[in-house]
Amino acid sequence: MAESPFKADIEKVQKEYGEKMTPGAIVYIPGSSVVNKTGGWRVFMPKFDKDKCIRCFMCYTLCPEPAIYLDEESYPVFDYEYCKGCGICANECPTKAIEMVRETK
């Protein structure tokens, strides 16, 4: 299973970011938003059926977060730490391999 592309960055941000005001309030670490785990916003979560997937990359292409990445076999992996559960992937999947289900927490 491939890693989320953001894992390395989180470590970097957590290591380098101290809450110290910079002149002009500059943000010095690009991509530091990754420490903000937006997965908590989710009400419905995408449930993925690998058997139905034709690896068209539609879900990967159209994810606004992005919270979908591809594994070595080019199947989508859903990053639930960031997925806000908008459901675009399920709506656009041509083979209905993704279903939005209410999340139970």
Partner: peptide
Amino acid sequence: MELPADVKKRLTLPAEEHFYAGHTACQGCG
């Protein structure tokens, strides 16, 4: 993350992400 060569070949968009997750757009933001 480095994507496998065959995936890269089939992808119609660049694999690199420079827009990072954790941003605070609403769900489904165009």
